[in-house]
Nucleic acid binder design. Structure first.
Lengths: 168, 168
DNA sequence: GCAACCAGTTGTAAAATGCAATCAGTTGAG
DNA sequence: CTCAACTGATTGCATTTTACAACTGGTTGC
């Protein structure tokens, strides 16, 4: 997709992240805290292939959604970070998650985070985005709650998994 | 896309509307009030081709996002309507529009609606969705303002166009 | 009767995607 | 120092999706 089809904001957004993988990569970075190529490749639910992942990471770096730095602990490793622009995709993901949760056959363990995020609303999203700004941009956040949104989502996810393994 | 990649709500949403055209069709139905095949085909900014449009309409009807009825005034015409599920894509579109408006080179006339919708926030979206429920589902809405959200967006769009044609 | 309009379908080329194998450099254990 | 495991990718090839133009069979209004 080289040529621009129109100056419509929805269309332009789709031209940048409107394929079947880009937003899943962003999702894994945001919700799964994946930062390395291998993590994104092997720990994804859907099994992205390495050439697609390499292409998407490259494209999203070019688009200003991600940045890539060298990992000081390993000469070959790169660390991918979200930019502010990337962090601001969270509300898009949250709305998509809410819609999918409501209308599609979502699995229980993968749906719990969508549910919490949907119930939490824009306020929770803003808090989560502040946490992401700290993690990815090094911007200290003011409001510090006991548990971060990220931690609460992870806890809920693990909780469902544990309950499913050992049903009452 | 027949097989499901995972039960993640974001992934499932992408599997349903995560291609480059489906959401543009929904956008034209919502914001452009297009209801017929030809309208969607010829009045779209991006120039969708007829086979893609036919396929997406068919798919979205199967998915429960749209319904198709015969037009009583013309034996060949079909009228496409949004379902509740389709109407609830509005927040997704609104967030994508807001993101595109903020971060991508959006044209002035096509950006004004995104701007207003972004400033209006979830309250305005809810009002707009009620209007869509009336138009597409025949559900009368309570709160009736002087101008509907749809009308206000259209007025703002025409305003920008007029200003651009005859600059001060 | 006929031109314009209606919702699509068909054929074919180009592009994107999926998959497995492979690559060259890095690291850490022995 | 050797070597297996790991790193971020790249390559080749089959399949799928998309793009573009022409076309179909039918309807409508003049």
């Amino acid at each position: 997709m080289d040529t621009q089809r129109s100056g419509c904001p929805i269309n332009l957004t789709l031209e940048v992240v409107g394929d079947k993988w880009s937003l899943l990569v962003v999702r894994d970075i945001i919700f799964g805290n994946r930062r390395h190529f291998r993590e994104l490749l092997t720990k994804s639910e859907e099994g992205i292939s390495s050439n697609i992942l390499a292409d998407r990471l490259k494209t999203m770096v070019e688009q200003g959604i991600l940045t890539r730095e060298d990992d000081p602990t390993h000469k070959q490793k790169g660390i991918y970070s979200l930019t502010e622009q990337g962090i601001e995709l969270l509300p898009v993901l949250a709305q998509m998650a809410a819609w999918g949760f409501k209308h599609l056959p979502v699995s229980e363990e993968l749906g719990i985070r969508a549910q919490l995020l949907s119930e939490g609303g824009p306020k929770m999203w803003a808090e989560f985005m502040d946490e992401l700004r700290e993690t990815h941009l090094g911007i200290k956040r003011r409001k510090r709650s006991k548990l971060t949104v990220g931690e609460r989502l992870q806890a809920a996810y693990r909780n469902v998994l544990a309950r499913k393994r050992k049903p009452a």
